[in-house]
């Protein structure tokens, strides 16, 4: 079974993001970029499936600017076999990404597609679900456990108040949650090997997909600053503040 994993290049989780001065987006100049952490988990899961003999090939795909090749090389160093970059400088929203991924799926015919449940930059949490709908296949979102069987896959999902187990017919789409696994560090020898693994660069036009954004960003701004705390001298004053300032009593 071939496994396709989608990875996104995002502002690193540890960077304190700042809006651009003109409010059109988040500042990304001279900011550390890394693989979306949920996608790292997705790659790890695919590689583990392969190591367990349950996947025959792991293909990673990323959509976006040329620098996404770095992100793909990281996935290759983690253990993926080959990579595809659909290169574009255009802004890609979840629906466009899902359509492009569908085109890649049509071309590659994987048995399983694994994505991060959401990207930490836009927090949309839509792409996996949209892709499953476009493909007309089953989806196991927020996965914390993935067990492929014969022509199907059992997925344990993180849901409100507990876990839910679903069984999906293959091919299927899975989105990874935090507890699915702990991604490995990338070994130095594997980084060198990754340089020699195939990385194919395609253009969105080749798929005939319309990637025009459907949503318009009006403004990106910092959340309002919280007022600092105050010390109160007595219980009476505390009650008064809770009633009249915080208005919680």
């Amino acid at each position: 079974m071939k496994v396709l994993v989608a990875v996104k290049r995002v502002v690193d989780y540890n960077v304190k993001v700042r809006p651009k001065a003109d409010g059109t987006g988040v500042e990304t100049a001279n900011v550390k970029m890394s693989m979306n952490p949920f996608d790292e988990i997705a790659v790890e899961e695919a590689v583990r499936l392969q190591e367990a003999g349950k996947a025959s090939e792991v293909v990673v795909v990323s959509l976006g600017v040329s620098a996404c090749q770095d992100t793909l090389r990281t996935a290759l160093a983690m253990g993926a076999d080959r990579a595809i970059l659909v290169e574009t400088d255009a802004e890609l929203q979840p629906l466009a990404v899902a359509k492009l991924l569908k085109a890649v799926v049509d071309k590659e015919q994987p048995g399983l597609v694994i994505l991060g449940k959401q990207a930490i930059d836009d927090d949309c949490n839509q792409t996996g679900q949209m892709l499953a709908a476009l493909l007309g296949c089953g989806q196991g979102t927020f996965a914390s456990k993935v067990e492929p069987g014969d022509g199907l896959v059992t997925v344990t999902r993180e849901v409100d108040g507990g876990a839910e187990t679903v069984e999906l017919k293959l091919p299927a789409v899975i989105t990874s949650d935090l507890r699915l696994n702990e991604p490995r560090y990338v070994k130095l020898p594997n980084i060198m090997k990754a340089k020699k693994k195939p990385l194919e660069v395609l253009k969105p036009e080749a798929f005939g997909v319309d990637v025009t954004p459907r949503l318009k960003t009006l403004k990106v701004a910092e959340p309002p600053k919280r007022a600092g705390g105050v010390k109160v001298a007595s219980v009476a004053e505390l009650v008064d503040k809770l009633k009249n300032v915080a208005q919680v009593l």
């Binding site: 690193d12 989780y13 693989m35 952490p37 160093a77 990338v186």
Partner: peptide
Amino acid sequence: DGVLSQSDSQWRAL
């Protein structure tokens, strides 16, 4: 053997 950090998060973790 050896590993190399791929992100700020891994830099911190290592």
